[in-house]
Design a protein around this nucleic acid. Sequence first.
DNA 1: ATTTTATATTTGTAAGACAAATTAACTTAT
DNA 2: ATAAGTTAATTTGTCTTACAAATATAAAAT
Lengths: 244, 244
Amino acid sequence: MSLELAPVNKSSLSKQVADQLQEAILEGFLKADDRLPTEDELAKRFQVSRPTIREALKRLAAKNLIRSRRGPTGGTFVNHLGADELSDQLATAATLFVSMNDISVDEISSTRLQLESLCCNLACDHRSEDDLNKLREELKIQLDESTSAEEFCASDVRFHRAIADASNNKMLSFVMYTLIEALQPVANMITYRFRQRDIITEQHRQLLNAIERQDSISARETLCEQVDYLNQLQKEAQANHQRR
Amino acid sequence: MSLELAPVNKSSLSKQVADQLQEAILEGFLKADDRLPTEDELAKRFQVSRPTIREALKRLAAKNLIRSRRGPTGGTFVNHLGADELSDQLATAATLFVSMNDISVDEISSTRLQLESLCCNLACDHRSEDDLNKLREELKIQLDESTSAEEFCASDVRFHRAIADASNNKMLSFVMYTLIEALQPVANMITYRFRQRDIITEQHRQLLNAIERQDSISARETLCEQVDYLNQLQKEAQANHQRR
DNA sequence: ATTTTATATTTGTAAGACAAATTAACTTAT
DNA sequence: ATAAGTTAATTTGTCTTACAAATATAAAAT
């Protein structure tokens, strides 16, 4: 009869090391821009080989928690993560979630409408001149005929992000970024295939105008209009796809 | 004068490989539960060494995109990701975001209040008997005096998740999970230090009741009450901390 | 027929070497 | 003395080889 005293950790060494380091970062023992020990040093301390340490570090790098540079002043450093740095992870997570759980476009766009309405309400109250300038800048890009399709899509994303940021609620911005990214594939497809840029741009102009005037009711109306419009186009596109 | 024709990829090999594999998963070339080639095979195909392949795979493993098993029928497989599987990543992302951008508790809880109100509205309209049963089950756990503090906190999380799920909007649920996780550290601290379980539980009872009766107005009132209550406790806790 | 044993496959870990990048210190020429 | 170029040292990036551990399959023994 064995007492099974050993509480052996079942997961791989590289995962254990990664978890410990992540804990240290989350608990604040390792702060932003702190330099970790060299890989050799870590290998000694954790009593594992360097490849194992490297696998652990790559796990953290995949989460954007650390960055590495070569050379004497190089090494591995803790990242400082803002909404921007986290957005790509959120984007892939959201994209995967949407594609693997067959989320309907309706679900996404209705959720987005609700949340973006919230953002607009707050934006009308709290928008700074800075926020308005960002929106104006993007609108200018979108009005420009010479703007390429790719640039237009990118500007579209930045425009909606700027609305979220204008809410002056960082947590809400963070959440909103996820939704914007999740819907973007659809929006891009529409922009590429139908090129109805002028309609979208006009809606953006009205949105900016409403936020300038702090007219949250009109802002919401415009939002509804845009979401409806995108939904309609999306359904047409789907119908076209079926017909083939 | 060199023409610099070579568009050399600046990032590391392991990152390039990881990106390519991730692309394949996101684009649907690799579906859930598909088995990837063995590490040796991948090394041959990508013309890199096995450690490099492994570093790439660990990057994807950190994102929960793949899992690995040893043995003849083992290998590396594509994960199917639901809201649950993604929640821990969201949790760490949200936790980091909150801690590294000094997000105020007000921002989090006001955002949560708005979103959870939304969930409640939808839940009142669309809740199934299944949803109600989940809520009842958690309430029962919370009413039980013998439930430990840890179990109570876990049940609290599940209760609010169940509300999100009852909205019948998966995208909204997904977003809501993030917020619940982000606020949880605060909620836990309160529960541990003040142990006002009965008040929280009573609020949950009222919430469940309102959703049962499809009374969205009363549901919202109870939500406000709970968020206010948590905010107040949080401020008291902070004041106590200052005084020392 | 059932259990045991061997065996093959695949991921996990280790050790050592060299390459590449990058900075610091040093040397040399002006 | 100053400036530029050179060398050396440090650290991550990659490769090679080898072995360990887990696990399913097939063969062999009971």
